[in-house]
Amino acid sequence: MLFYVFASIAVVASLLVIAQRNPIHSVLLLVASFGALSGLYVLLDAPFVAVIQIIVYAGAIMVLFLFVVMLLNAPVEDTEYDQKVHPLLRQGPTRFGVLLAVALVAELFWALTKGGGESGAFAGGAVSSVRTIGRSLFTNYSFAFEVTSILILVAMVGAVVLARQER
């Protein structure tokens, strides 16, 4: 039951994210969507992922987005046509986007219903304690974990270089 509550919150909030004119509203709605997804992770016996979803995604990445939106202080729409017509109802490539999304959902639905009855309820017994994840992260995945730190460092340097004022 709780699954459907969280799932509908996530879907509705995500739909509203791409339907908003004001980017600040989009960011705040995406935070709501991430909260619902975090609830779904709890239902999937993944408390570690649920917590870092809130801390890293909602707490860090979305705040970064909010900073940039407020820093730029850009006008919500550029042209008069954009002001009149809702962003999802414009001419041109938007039609293609709708088509693609509908095709993707239809295909997925077809594949999942066609696949047969093996997708039953989940097996009992949660395995994913934080201890298991941490042990695996620092043994089997230690190389990837260290490479991740280099990735973060490179991204940090790149962001500073890109956003710097040139004089």
């Binding site: 994210v17 999304a101 993707l104």
Partner: peptide, 20 residues
């Protein structure tokens, strides 16, 4: 997950705002 992915893909194609 598929529905959410489709919403995201539709957003990339439909919106003309870099932040969105």
């Amino acid at each position: 997950s598929g529905v959410l992915f489709a919403i995201g893909a539709a957003g990339v194609f439909m919106r003309r705002n870099l932040i969105t």
